[in-house]
Design a binder for these strands. Structure first.
Lengths: 347, 347
DNA sequence: TTGTAAGCGTTATCAG
DNA sequence: CTGATAACGCTTACAA
């Protein structure tokens, strides 16, 4: 803070005790005469002393009481819900959270990770951009604690907490099939991305299970933002033989698809992956994982590691749920029911 | 990170140079023979050395390269958009951002501020919970740099960047009046909150300017979450003499109001304050401030202060815009136009 | 071009 | 119960 903050020594002088006594009082160590303690506390109060946690964690060489979180984009509600849950859990442990957005850029992500490690965070939560993460091994070997969130990393030597994307995609497709849809299109992000890949796989599996052919014209991958999703949707709906349903594989894509449908004033059944604000009002059916639970589970794993857990890295899958809403626009009460999957955990 | 990370001394020994030479290389100070530098870099590489920024900023007694941001709730898209913008700007300065949610709890907020100050953040961005902030003066006097975001704080001795809430509310009401609405209801948060108070004031002003009477039954303040907004909306719509329009004074309230309208299958014109995801698809007209601009402006002020700016605290108002969309549900292309206000700045 | 010594604000150790 | 004194890992003088 730049200013002239008083130090323990200042307090010690003001209270006419040694610096160590001040330290004892500040850290509530006990073994200080009530009278002395009072004098020290007075000095602390009148000087406005506040312990310097930087110096503290330098000396204790442990517990900077800071956790780092690197995500794709904090402005994406999916990530900010995770961040919020993480923040809350981290705070229960008396720590603070540094958040950083990588824009899914591997280069930037690595920079951010290094910056956080230089700051000696106690642990790191990472939504890995799709790229090799073997470089992280050097850090984990040196004692850095890392947990991956939402997707595992290639060669990433750490636990990962992810959703059951395959199962979720199957829930979505099965639902559409149940509604009698047969020409189901899927719009997904870059298949290099773990989540997109799995959701596409789940789509294919479910279609096969339903004995439905997959028209490759209806499989649109590599769609990264809402605007592209909008364009792709318009393109799909203007096909000679358009799809009768859409599986939109993440929240940005769902939003773009809705805009696209609106643009061509044409509607098909939609099931989206990820919750979207106001989806209840829109009567939008989604498959959605519990983002806060994802965050909390990740923090718990991280603290387990920090606490000395030495097990081999685990992949923990959290089951998403299908939230069925009436797929119609208009005003009126909506029914809503949920279909679940089991939560699984594998080594 | 707990482990046995190598220090400069380890590197120095490995490269057979002094610790100071390592420091020079690490900080790219120059004045090192290329040959020596190479040896040091080799050692750094093979040891996996990483500078300890905690120790560094302890010694330099400046620039922990960390900024703190305390907001109400990181999971609220309005705040997460601000956080994202702040994060981005902060990173341009080579710093990282610690985010913390206060839940609008003055007690918790103060705890978080203290934790951040103990960590010697270079500056603090604060969305103040409505409560006296004179306690902050002691900190600012000691050199802490603070900027308030979204609302000023009572007795808060610092710059504040806020939206022109009065003007925004007037834009909203004027728009409804222009549509021929006369019985306009307002749903707002607790009037203790600066933004709610100003928006209510703007509502009253605009109604008076339009020569419309304000039915106190249609003024509903103290509505803090979406669920209460939903209930209030249902209540309003079921009145013997219901309103023909709603001004919903923040994003959570807007969402709740839409749910309420849906629940009673009854629709009135709505203008909301704050942008809401998918409002374009819903054809929802809103008054909305540019959250990223708010964040960026705040960071700029903060760095100006950190840089030594000594002017008396300023209140900077950013003008929101009215985004008009066709207030109808259904599918079809939407028109959209914007109405602006001037940005103002006052001492 | 390189090295030595001191010190940032704490806590740990070991005496009184 | 209280206090010197030495670290923690780094940077800032100031020498060599």
């Amino acid at each position: 803070m730049g200013g002239a903050r008083p130090t323990m020594l200042d307090v010690a002088r003001a209270a006419d005790v040694s610096i160590k006594t001040v330290s004892r009082v500040v850290n509530a160590e006990g073994g200080v005469a009530p009278q002395t303690r009072a004098r020290v506390n007075d000095a602390i109060g009148s000087l406005g002393y506040r312990r310097n946690d930087l110096a503290r964690s330098l000396r204790t060489r442990t517990a900077s009481a800071t956790i780092g979180l690197v995500i794709g984009d904090l402005a994406n509600p999916f990530y900010s819900r995770i961040a919020r849950a993480v923040e809350q859990r981290v705070r229960c442990e008396g720590s603070l959270l540094i958040t950083a957005s990588s824009d899914e850029d591997p280069e930037l992500e690595r920079e951010l990770v290094h910056a956080l490690l230089s700051r000696r965070v106690d642990g790191l939560l990472l939504v890995p951009a799709e790229a090799d993460h073997s470089w992280l091994q050097r850090e984990t070997r040196r004692g850095a604690h890392v947990v991956f969130v939402d997707r595992p990393a290639r060669n990433g030597p750490a636990d990962a907490i992810v959703f059951d994307n395959v199962g979720g995609a199957r829930l979505a497709v099965d639902h559409l099939v149940g509604l009698g849809r047969r020409r189901i299109a899927v719009i997904a992000d870059n298949p290099e991305l773990f989540t997109a890949r799995e959701r596409l796989a789940g789509f294919a599996t479910a279609m096969a299970a339903a004995n439905l052919p997959v028209d490759q014209d209806l499989v649109r991958a590599g769609v990264h933002d809402a605007e592209s999703a909008r364009e792709v949707t318009i393109d799909l709906l203007r096909m000679a033989h358009p799809p009768d349903a859409l599986f939109t594989a993440n929240n940005r894509i769902t939003i773009g698809a809705l805009r696209g449908m609106q643009a061509v004033a044409r509607s098909v059944s939609v099931v989206g992956f990820d919750e979207v604000e106001l989806s209840d009002v829109l009567g939008l059916t989604v498959v959605s994982g519990d983002a806060p639970e994802l965050g909390r589970t990740a923090v718990d794993r991280l603290y387990a590691r920090i606490g000395g857990d030495q097990q081999p890295p685990r992949l923990i899958r959290i089951a998403p749920r299908l939230v069925v809403r009436e797929p119609l626009w208009g005003i009126g009460a909506r029914k809503q029911r949920e279909v679940g999957l089991e939560r699984t955990s594998a080594p």
